[in-house]
Nucleic acid binder design. Structure first.
Lengths: 120, 120
DNA sequence: CCTACATATGAACATATATTCATATATTAA
DNA sequence: TTAATATATGAATATATGTTCATATGTAGG
């Protein structure tokens, strides 16, 4: 994505002052990259349903699979991604593993999204 | 994803009361699907950068391409997705098209995400 | 030890998606 | 009209990603 990029507009439409201002105020790329990763993790139907379920109640892997009609494997794989994104935490009780939302911040972000969707 | 799904756990680990409670409180699938789409649209580095830029200032397509060092085509394609998700709006002034965040709700969702990322 | 069971994970496959390239559309000016 | 320019878009390609299948890991009980 760094080479083929042809000549963008001539000059007429460019607004140097705006660009300067924007350049200054931009968040660092590294932070934006992590933000994109966070949203990407949230951006899947299966994962959204899992998070919704966990926002109601702590559940074990089997509960989630049964509730959402998914295979145990599929759920496990998705939980791994959610764990990596620090969106869920877990505790083990014998062979059973219970998952829950990691913190209220996740809940807030999630419900904020719900509100947005409801309004459209 | 509806057939191979093997036998989930036997019964020992299932929590019927929890499942009932969760089933009742779950948002409708259609809403969760739209939420996933929303997050998916937000979940891309290029689009996140575009939104960040627009959260600072209204910009034309050329401005965005120059600011983020992207081809005009790539920017246009992404703006199409952002438009479809109602995350940005635009106004035309001659041949120049200016884009801006669609509303404060988007801004809130976006900054909320930034906060989350900053804290980790 | 061995068996059963809950969960995790690697590989393969099928699908989705982001960018590039080429080209189309729309607007202004001559 | 024709030329120039800003933006949009279709097709192709390369990469990413979600699910399945098979299997591994970890834990409890006999």
């Amino acid at each position: 994505m760094e080479k083929g990029k042809q000549a963008v507009c001539q000059t007429h439409c460019l607004h140097p002052e705006k660009l300067d201002k924007a350049r200054e105020a931009m968040e660092p790329d590294e932070r934006l990259a992590r933000l994109a990763e966070l949203f990407k993790t949230l951006g899947d139907f299966t994962r959204v349903r899992i998070l919704q379920a966990l926002s109601i109640e702590e559940l074990c892997v089997c509960d989630i699979a049964a509730l959402l009609d998914l295979s145990q494997s599929a759920v496990s794989h998705q939980l791994r991604l959610l764990r990596a994104a620090q969106l869920v935490r877990y505790r083990k009780e014998g062979k059973i593993v219970y998952y829950a939302l990691d913190d209220d911040h996740v809940y807030t972000l999630f419900t904020q999204g719900i509100e947005h969707v409801k309004e459209k």
